[in-house]
């Protein structure tokens, strides 16, 4: 479903943001040619339980939410704003079915590329391989932040750390989902926010 053109400047900016300053015109054009562009409305859901993901997504504009349904409850794993990637790691590593769900919290445009195409580009272009590795390393950094958040005892501390690390997310997502992401109740989050924004 190729609805829109791929924005090459956006791809180049993503590279720069990850500290990758190389990248030939040929590489970016081939990269763009392997991308499928998707445009989805706020609240729509991209995936369902049991999907085997074969791709990595990159948000161009808008914000997505990754979550699981656990014991009937919607628990947010994280948020994916502009310039950030998302995929099911279970599927990436071992082509297994995934329980990961993804929903849009705003009208969103995202780019999609298959694992095979990514692997081919990594082999063909060192700059692309570097970009891919930097992206994975960034995800690890994010996990470390989440580990730290979940080891904090106070809800205020959790919220503060999250806001500091992800400043362009807090105001754009519903409190109920931010709460589950931080491992606290929505009521607690309300109290935390009113303490902070007095």
């Amino acid at each position: 479903m190729k609805q829109q053109k791929v924005d090459l400047d956006f791809l180049k900016a993503c590279f720069k943001a990850k500290g990758v300053n190389e990248g030939s015109k040929e590489m970016f054009e081939e990269f763009a040619s392997k991308i499928e562009v998707f445009s989805i409305k706020k609240y729509s859901v991209l995936s369902k339980e049991g999907d085997v993901w074969g791709y990595i997504g990159l948000v161009k504009s808008g914000i997505l939410r990754t979550y699981y349904i656990k014991n009937g409850k919607d628990v947010t794993e994280g948020f994916v704003p502009e310039g950030r990637e998302f995929t099911s790691l279970a599927s990436l590593y071992s082509q297994k079915e995934s329980c990961l769900l993804v929903a849009a919290e705003e009208d969103t445009i995202y780019y999609r590329m298959s694992y095979e195409d990514i692997e081919k580009l990594c082999i063909k272009y060192p700059a692309f391989d570097l970009f891919f590795q930097q992206s994975m390393a960034y995800k690890i950094k994010m996990f470390n932040i989440y580990f730290e958040i979940l080891h904090l005892d106070s809800a205020d501390e959790r919220f503060n750390l999250f806001s500091r690390e992800f400043p362009n997310v807090v105001s754009r997502v519903p409190s109920i989902h931010l709460a589950t992401c931080l491992g606290i109740t929505p009521e607690t989050l309300s109290r935390v926010k009113s303490r902070r924004y007095k």
Partner: peptide, 17 residues
Amino acid sequence: LTQYLMSAQEHLDLLKY
């Protein structure tokens, strides 16, 4: 990197859910 990420994801899921 992928191996590490996979384990980190599993552990995060454990802590969270």
